[in-house]
């Protein structure tokens, strides 16, 4: 297998605080890779560095061998790095149909077409319909997103990221706050993501991590503490002390 998304000696400091400390990391093609660590370990900062929200103090980010350190957020999306957010970031006044249409239109480069009619673009319609079906949103596609139940909104969050047709998908705590009744459907959605999409899962929930992840990286105080297969990481004494011990009584 080959690396899709890599970082080399990535450092990010805020004032005197080092949030990301010399992280060299590699996400393999088709991976189901979990990034874990206690609160304040720098997981969110790391994701922001990968997606271009933040610029690193030093170090590089590369996508399939090409340097993307200096690229903007939207340029990275165009190259195939998409993400979901820990807290839903949705177009709340839109319907799921409109939101997915928007992402699809952007992916197909229609964004500056001022006079294009949305219903006259067959390619975009086919793709939008495909996403709606894949994430089981057909029945609610004409309802305002703000009025939908939280679990559905979480589905749309993932669907919108997926609609950008990424090669790398960063899922930031996808099941956070989803009530038990809707949880199963959401986990099925995550499990059903196609194999050619490489997934980096930022998660707290050990249950989900051991269910999906084939590889785990543990981040503590901005540094990589260890990396390996789930079973190996789970036995690691340092991880237990730094993270699992804490998680046990959370």
């Amino acid at each position: 297998m080959s690396a899709v998304l890599q970082t080399f000696n990535l450092v990010k400091t805020f004032g005197g605080i080092t949030a990301t400390d010399d992280v060299t990391f590699s996400l393999e093609k088709g991976a189901r890779h979990a990034l874990i660590g206690p609160n304040g370990a720098g997981k969110t900062t790391f994701v922001n560095l990968l997606t271009g929200v933040l610029r690193p103090t030093s170090g590089r980010v590369s996508l399939v061998g090409q340097d993307i350190t200096g690229l903007s957020r939207e340029a990275r999306v165009k190259r195939g790095v998409a993400r979901t957010f820990q807290i839903n970031q949705l177009f709340r006044t839109m319907t799921p149909l409109e939101m997915i249409s928007l992402v699809t239109a952007e992916r197909l480069g229609r964004g500056m077409r001022l006079f294009q009619r949305l219903d006259a673009d067959g390619e975009a319609i086919a793709e939008t319909a495909d996403i709606l079906a894949r994430f089981k949103l057909e029945d609610i596609m004409d309802q305002r997103i703000a009025t939908l139940p939280y679990g559905k909104q979480r589905q749309i969050e993932i669907a919108a990221a997926f609609a950008a047709r990424p090669s790398v998908l960063l899922l930031d705590e996808p099941a956070a706050g989803v009530p038990e009744a809707e949880r199963r459907e959401l986990l099925e959605t995550v499990a059903a993501l196609p194999d050619d999409v490489s997934v980096l899962l930022i998660e707290h929930d050990m249950d989900i991590i051991f269910r999906f992840a084939t590889r785990i990286t543990v981040l503590v105080n901005g540094r990589v503490l260890t990396e390996g297969e789930p079973a190996v990481v789970a036995r690691d004494a340092a991880v237990k002390q730094a993270y699992l011990g804490e998680a046990a009584h959370v």
Partner: peptide, 24 residues
Amino acid sequence: NSPFGLSLRGIRDNQLRAAASGVP
């Protein structure tokens, strides 16, 4: 009512998601 107009509504609703959806 065009894709351009839709992207504007997206920006109005949520700039973070708009940027994360590839909207410049």
